[in-house]
Amino acid sequence: MPTKTLKWFYVGIGLILVLVPIVWTVAGSFRTEADLFGHPAGLIPHQWTLHGYRGVWSQLPFLRLLGNSVLFAGITTALTVLFDSMCAYALARLNFRGRDVAFWLVLVTLMVPFQVTLIPVFVELFHLGWLNTYQGLIVPRATSAFGIFLFRQFFMSIPRELDEAARIDGAGHLRIYWRVILPLAKPAIATVALLNFTNLWNDLLWPLVVSSSPDMQTLPAGLALFGGQHVTDHAVLLAGAVISLLPIAVAFFLAQRYFVAGISTSGLK
């Protein structure tokens, strides 16, 4: 059928556009500079080299950076999921004065570009004595307006009869939230967790601003050092990109079943 051919043609072009750059990146991290310049039309290395990976390994305290990244992105994501879902529960399930105002305030924060608040936030962290500390790194990012928004939408799609049944059994709000709503919200949790984790993992500016100590540097911050001023070593830069991408890719392929299923059943409406 022509529509079917058309459909697969469209999807096929899209796939090529998406996959080729990714393959090129991975392959490029194994290519020599001469190979890159000599065969710009090539996708696969003509001669393989580990120069890029060796460069990254020898110049970075790699495990330390990795550990910091996991710590920062992991703890912050866990807190975000907890705080966002609690906040969303109140917004979706409780009736109280000021609910609309609270919801709008949350939405407004979604509209603030990070660069705008950078300097005031830095000064605040200073007054709190939180610069160069893990709480300074984690607490300000431990909630996200987008997550609250997503949870709220999801919770509203859960039939209210379920809460009422629980309430008849004498459950309070905390119990309903923890025992009824959250277990049903696994797909939303997966979605918010994955999106937050990738955002935090990829964040470069924030860790740099909060900590000046090399002991607290995260992976992207460490890798940014290779974007040096003078000579671009493509293999090292691409190797850095692949390395920082790898954990995300693993997390993504592990979580994607829940995630795709999650965002599908969440019925965002």
Partner: peptide, 15 residues
């Protein structure tokens, strides 16, 4: 501590 000039430019004034 060696870091890109860009980064220093962002952090140093407020630091």
């Amino acid at each position: 501590t060696v870091q890109p000039w860009d980064t220093i430019q962002q952090k140093l004034p407020s630091a």
